[in-house]
Measured scan of single mutants.
Amino acid sequence: MGSVRTNRYSIVSSEEDGMKLATMAVANGFGNGKSKVHTRQQCRSRFVKKDGHCNVQFINVGEKGQRYLADIFTTCVDIRWRWMLVIFCLAFVLSWLFFGCVFWLIALLHGDLDTDYKDDDDKSKVSKACVSEVNSFTAAFLFSIETQTTIGYGFRCVTDECPIAVFMVVFQSIVGCIIDAFIIGAVMAKMAKPKKRNETLVFSHNAVIAMRDGKLCLMWRVGNLRKSHLVEAHVRAQLLKSRITSEGEYIPLDQIDINVGFDSGIDRIFLVSPITIVHEIDEDSPLYDLSKQDIDNADFEIVVILEGMVEATAMTTQCRSSYLANEILWGHRYEPVLFEEKHYYKVDYSRFHKTYEVPNTPLCSARDLAEKKYILSNANSFCYENEVALTSKEEEEDSENGVPESTSTDSPPGIDLHNQASVPLEPRPLRRESEIGSRR
């Protein structure tokens, strides 16, 4: 089982795998120059863009038009607004034209077009017409509009002379109601789609790998820009990579689940303020055997998904993003964004995407760390350097704002901070800030 798991979770494809794949392509008759073999020097295209759209195009789909027309309502909801407006206008105009032609044909076959009612006051002739005051196609078209929109100006009306005319008036009224219901329903469904809710759900630009509770963890940050909550919010993550099976089958995008606390339930989050999602790199993680150097040379993509129900409509929305291997910062942490004021908490989104480097973060893999092949620094050293990194950030910001350097908390000259780390230190809580992250 261990060997199978290692093969499945191998992220960085070796040169031997690339040569094996190329040999397979030639042997199977696919070596026509169009096949692409992804190596370390040639990274694959992003499968999920940063804005959440999937970078996929469908080609050679059989009976595409028929399949889309069979699900016309979903098609109308998914198309762009400009095409929705075109369909909206065409549906009414074509129905008016169709029934206008029908009423014109009825008048033509009944002989109503030969009668001039402007110079004739004989009401008996008017009563013999199928539709009064309809003696041309324009008049028939206007009567069709008046019937379907129930305008009723009063000059044109159907008589009991022709039952077919009466039937067409009733039929057009029913068709008009159906068109109204369909168009209004599609427009309302399109307006109520929770897709735009994703514009106020954000992911951090970069993911980070750092120590948390004595273990290497992959972390990324999510935030909600609205005050309205995302009900039943939960997160998922998958690692996408290519691999070759033991039988020699090439899988271009193998999807591997990344555990973010599904078993323990901590994948469900209360997204009021930005939260750091934590994936513990343990023996079940696809990143277990990867060191910093392996991450730098790897070719994979981590897709992160945030799902929840919109509070206003109770409709489920899904926000997506992805991180390539070069977008994962090893040995970094996110800057705090949640600050405790006197009577409330304040979230500073200008710090949302910012990170700071944490010294002495192990550069080895989580496996080597678990097997004690890498000796961690003293816990006080880690905490102290973590505090120094934050303090230096604040000093830089104070210097930019014009604060005198004498007010900063610099260490005395001639003292090495790293050498001082081995000395037991008193706890130094942050002056006014605390970061709330997901705790395992």
Rank of each mutant, 00 (worst) to 15 (best):
G2L: 03
S3E: 15
V4A: 08
R5S: 12
R5F: 05
R5V: 07
T6K: 05
T6F: 05
Y9N: 15
Y9K: 13
I11E: 15
I11N: 13
I11T: 11
V12W: 04
V12D: 15
S13R: 04
E15A: 09
E16K: 04
E16M: 05
M19G: 10
L21K: 12
A22Q: 12
T23H: 10
T23F: 07
M24N: 09
A25T: 14
A25K: 09
A27S: 10
N28V: 05
G29E: 15
G29K: 08
G31P: 12
G31E: 05
G31T: 11
K34G: 14
V37C: 05
T39G: 11
T39D: 13
R40K: 13
R44M: 10
R44A: 15
S45V: 05
R46Q: 01
R46I: 00
R46E: 02
F47D: 00
K50G: 06
D51F: 03
G52R: 00
C54A: 12
V56L: 12
Q57M: 05
Q57V: 06
Q57C: 08
F58I: 09
I59V: 09
N60V: 05
V61H: 11
V61G: 15
G65P: 15
Q66L: 14
Q66H: 13
R67C: 10
R67L: 05
Y68A: 08
L69F: 12
I72H: 13
F73T: 12
V77S: 11
V77W: 13
D78S: 14
D78P: 09
I79Y: 05
W81F: 12
W81M: 07
R82Q: 09
R82D: 03
W83Q: 06
M84D: 05
M84S: 03
L85E: 02
V86Y: 03
V86I: 11
V86Q: 15
F88H: 08
F88A: 09
L90V: 04
L90F: 04
A91L: 13
V93W: 01
V102T: 08
V102F: 11
W104L: 12
L105F: 03
A107Y: 05
L109F: 03
H110I: 00
H110Q: 02
D112F: 00
L113P: 02
D114R: 07
D116F: 15
Y117F: 04
Y117N: 01
Y117M: 00
D120H: 00
D120A: 00
S124L: 15
K125M: 14
V126N: 04
V126M: 11
V126K: 03
K128M: 13
A129Q: 08
S132M: 07
E133F: 03
V134W: 01
S136E: 01
F137S: 02
T138V: 04
A140H: 01
A140S: 12
S144E: 01
S144D: 01
I145D: 01
E146N: 02
Q148Y: 01
Q148F: 03
I151R: 06
I151G: 15
F155A: 14
C157V: 14
C157N: 10
T159K: 01
T159L: 01
T159N: 04
D160W: 01
D160Y: 02
E161T: 08
C162Q: 01
P163I: 10
A165L: 01
A165F: 00
A165G: 06
V166D: 02
F167Q: 02
F167W: 03
V169M: 11
V170H: 02
F171G: 03
F171K: 03
F171E: 01
S173H: 04
S173C: 15
G176I: 02
I178R: 01
I178G: 03
I178A: 11
I178C: 13
I178W: 12
A181E: 11
F182R: 12
I183S: 13
I184G: 09
G185Q: 07
A186Q: 08
A186N: 12
V187R: 02
A189F: 10
A189M: 14
A189W: 15
E199I: 05
T200V: 06
L201Y: 05
V202F: 05
V202E: 13
F203M: 08
H205T: 10
A207H: 03
V208D: 00
V208M: 01
M211G: 04
R212Q: 14
D213K: 15
L216M: 05
W220D: 00
W220S: 13
R221Q: 14
R221F: 01
G223N: 06
N224H: 09
N224K: 08
L225F: 15
K227F: 10
K227C: 06
S228G: 07
S228F: 04
H229P: 12
V231E: 07
E232T: 14
H234E: 13
V235I: 07
R236C: 05
A237L: 01
Q238E: 11
L239T: 00
I244R: 15
T245F: 07
E247A: 10
G248R: 05
Y250S: 15
P252I: 15
P252M: 15
L253H: 06
L253S: 13
L253F: 04
D254Q: 13
Q255L: 11
I256Q: 11
D257Q: 09
N259L: 07
V260W: 00
S264A: 11
S264W: 14
G265H: 10
I266Y: 13
D267R: 07
D267W: 06
R268I: 05
R268C: 10
R268Q: 11
R268M: 04
I269V: 13
I269Y: 06
F270N: 07
L271W: 12
V272K: 08
S273H: 12
I275T: 07
I275D: 05
I277E: 01
I277F: 09
V278N: 03
I281M: 08
E283K: 08
D284S: 13
D284M: 13
S285L: 00
Y288T: 00
L290D: 02
S291Y: 00
S291P: 02
Q293F: 08
D294A: 11
I295M: 04
D296P: 07
N297E: 13
A298M: 09
D299L: 07
I302F: 05
V304S: 14
V304N: 02
V304W: 08
L306T: 05
L306K: 02
L306I: 09
E307H: 11
M309Y: 14
E311W: 04
E311T: 13
A312Y: 10
T313Y: 06
T313C: 10
M315C: 13
T316I: 06
C319K: 11
R320V: 11
S321D: 01
S322H: 01
Y323C: 06
Y323F: 10
Y323V: 07
L324D: 02
A325K: 03
A325W: 03
A325C: 07
N326R: 07
N326M: 04
N326S: 09
N326G: 11
L329E: 06
L329W: 02
G331K: 02
H332V: 01
H332N: 03
H332E: 04
R333W: 13
Y334D: 00
P336V: 09
V337H: 01
L338D: 03
F339M: 15
E340T: 10
E341F: 10
Y344H: 09
K346Q: 05
D348F: 01
Y349K: 07
S350K: 15
R351N: 15
F352P: 00
H353V: 00
T355A: 02
Y356N: 09
E357Q: 08
V358P: 01
V358A: 13
V358H: 06
N360I: 03
T361M: 15
T361R: 01
T361C: 09
S365T: 01
R367K: 15
R367F: 00
L369F: 10
A370C: 08
A370S: 04
K372E: 14
K372V: 07
Y374G: 14
L376G: 09
S377N: 09
S377T: 11
N378Y: 04
F382V: 14
Y384L: 15
Y384A: 06
A389Q: 15
L390K: 11
L390W: 05
S392K: 10
E394N: 14
E394A: 09
E395F: 10
E396Q: 11
E397L: 08
E397T: 11
E397G: 11
D398E: 08
S399A: 15
E400S: 11
N401C: 10
V403E: 14
V403A: 13
P404Q: 12
E405T: 11
T407N: 03
T407C: 11
T409G: 09
S411I: 07
P412V: 08
P412R: 10
P412I: 14
P413W: 07
G414D: 04
G414P: 11
I415M: 13
D416N: 06
D416R: 09
H418N: 13
H418E: 14
N419P: 06
A421V: 11
S422E: 14
V423T: 12
P424W: 07
P424K: 08
L425C: 13
L425P: 13
L425G: 12
E426I: 05
E426Q: 07
E426A: 05
P429M: 15
P429V: 13
L430T: 11
R432I: 15
R432G: 05
S434N: 05
I436H: 12
